[in-house]
Nucleic acid binder design. Structure first.
Length: 563
DNA sequence: GCCGTTTTCGGCCCGACTGTTTTCAGTCG
């Protein structure tokens, strides 16, 4: 059972307790463990192996005992008795906004929903036409782009007001629900009026003195909240979340006799206002915490001890090593559509010192070995020519890379002789995703042994909204990569964002180096780098953890160092 | 069920919205 499944289980236990009218603090306890597991950077099963279950925040003797029973016997007698008498289908309904445990239980009874698999369908039918909106979240880059358009529009009209995104958007999680924005202004009325008339707004849902909600023509809901500048810090902090982060902060405040809300910090009846988040956090005795870290995964303790990491920034990135040009490489996967020259020009504009052209390997089944080698040789000649023609005053260097399939047996999909044309290669899994954890780990580690492989591409293989990643023994992968100096890719492609933030954090703790790449198939995709950087930041990565923050001179040494 | 330099017992985050059970329970962020 992996962390995701465990988190689901604990959420279900919490919901079941709620339906049964158990003590609300017991419910909260299970809920908090669910959340802690969801954000845990270690596999709970591994912690169990090492006898460290109580390292998980909120896990005490009792829950540790249940987990132990779960891993030993595959089920927990206590949980089974909690679930007794409840329809399994109700837990499927909990993902629908507005439906909590009690409503889910009632619906299952009233509508006679029994089968978990068809529960949502049945509910939808019952709810006549589309009154119930199933949770579908937006990929971060698209949400960000939409928010930016509105912010830009409003900023132009109100140049002196500060405007920020809120919630998961500001924390830059991989997917975002609704878009929330905040404005610090003395002219709330005018700001809201302009908000209602932003281009692309289809419908006004509500509009009040300080807040408004609209529907964008793409169907997304956008909320705006305004606050006087003198009290803006608390609003910004409150609605940025995360929920767990805020709960933890309020517990700390409570112990100091303080009470936190979106309006400020209350002591007795007196409320203090804060213009900035910095002042707000300072009043609680800690450093300002970058939004990307606000998940209650240790950032609050770090901020109290002035031990927050210096997170990597977009401006520190010096190159992009995973680019698919339109070089005719005759691959069976997607080819890029922009020329090497076009990508080089763009790289220069972005201030990079080097790029890596890492097209997919030539199709293995449609070519003879000799044909593959010929193609690879031609590509090397092309790259050499480009580097040479730029003379000695190289503004930007082109590395000759390749993204090579890891076949199911762990072999790499080009003949050994082809490697000599490459400066480096990325190894990626593009097939047979459903192997078990042990077999998949063996497969991947075999591929990563080749001296030309420097990067493990999109390591979890997940595609948001499409499929979960394959299973890997991360402890083994981290240990291997750390020893052999293999870099894990943080792939910035919108529906990948892979490594995940949680695994980045784990990699950082294990001293494993990473590299942020866009996987561009077209020149404009190179702008997606910022989203990869966001994932790195959410995983506590500093400049030193990320290889492509190195200057060209350092980087070329690092490339050769591993051979 | 968890947790602790104010507590090993007695606490456990805050405010707002929604709908309809007009005084509150359920849900959310």
């Amino acid at each position: 059972m992996n962390n995701k499944q465990l988190a689901e289980l604990f959420k279900a236990v919490s919901a079941a307790l709620e339906v049964k009218g158990e003590d609300k603090f017991k419910i909260k306890a299970y809920d908090e463990v669910a959340s802690a597991i969801e954000h845990s950077s270690s596999e709970v099963k591994d912690l169990w192996d090492d006898g460290q279950l109580q390292e998980i925040p909120g896990v005490g003797a009792s829950i540790a005992g249940h987990l132990d029973e779960l891993f030993r016997k595959g089920k927990v007698a206590h949980f089974e008795s909690i679930f007794r008498g409840l329809p399994p289908a109700m837990f499927e309904l909990l993902n629908v906004p507005g439906i909590g445990p009690k409503t889910a239980f009632k619906l299952c009874q009233e509508l006679r929903i029994k089968d978990p698999k068809t529960a949502l369908l049945k509910l939808e039918k019952a709810a006549k036409q589309g009154k119930i909106r199933l949770e579908d979240r937006m990929l971060l880059p698209f949400a960000w782009e939409l928010a930016e358009k509105i912010i830009t529009y409003l900023q132009k009209k109100h140049p002196k007001d500060r405007i920020d995104p809120l919630g998961s958007l500001r924390r830059k999680t991989a997917t975002v629900g609704d878009i929330d924005l905040a404005v610090a202004t003395k002219n709330a009325k005018e700001v809201i009026e302009d908000f209602l008339h932003c281009p692309g707004i289809k419908e006004v849902v509500v509009s009040g003195k300080n807040t408004a909600r609209v529907i964008h023509q793409n169907g997304r809901q956008i909320d705006l909240k305004t606050m006087e500048p003198g009290a803006y810090g608390a609003l910004l902090q409150h609605f940025t979340g995360s929920k767990q982060h805020n709960i933890h902060l309020r517990e700390i405040a409570q112990k100091k006799g303080l009470s936190l809300s979106e309006y400020g910090i209350k002591k007795g009846k007196k409320i203090s206002k804060y213009a900035t988040e910095e002042a707000f956090y300072r009043a609680l005795g800690m450093e300002w915490i970058p939004p990307e870290l606000r998940e209650d995964s240790g950032e609050i303790e770090a901020a109290q001890n002035t031990k927050l990491p210096q997170l990597v920034e977009l401006g520190a990135i010096k190159g992009d090593l995973h680019l698919h040009s339109n070089f005719p490489i005759e691959t069976s996967h997607d080819e890029g559509s922009s020329s090497i020259e076009t990508l080089m020009e763009k790289g220069k504009k972005l201030g990079y010192e080097y790029l890596g052209f890492s097209e997919h390997n030539p199709s293995f089944s449609k070519h003879s070995q000799k044909q593959i080698i010929d193609i690879l040789k031609r590509k090397k000649e092309t790259i050499d020519k480009i580097n040479y023609s730029r003379g000695k005053k190289l503004l930007i260097h082109a590395f000759n890379g390749l993204e090579i399939d890891i076949k199911p047996d762990g072999r790499l999909a080009i003949p050994e002789e082809g490697f000599k044309f490459l400066d480096f290669a990325i190894a990626s899994v593009h097939s047979s995703f459903k192997m078990n954890r042990q077999a998949m780990t063996k497969r991947v580690l075999k591929a990563l042994q080749h001296p030309k492989i420097k990067i493990f591409g999109h390591p979890t293989g997940r595609k948001l909204g499409e499929r979960e990643g394959y299973e890997l023994d991360w402890e083994q992968v981290f240990s291997f990569c750390q020893k052999r100096n293999i870099w894990l890719e943080i792939n910035a492609w919108p529906n990948r964002l892979d490594l995940t933030d949680v695994l980045v954090h784990e990699a950082v703790k294990n001293g494993v180096k990473m590299i942020i790449c866009t996987d561009s198939h077209q020149v404009d995709h190179m702008d997606l780098m910022e989203y990869g950087v966001a994932v790195a930041r959410r995983g506590w990565a500093t400049k030193n953890d990320i290889m492509n923050t190195m200057s060209y001179n350092q980087f070329i040494k690092a490339l050769k160092g591993g051979e």
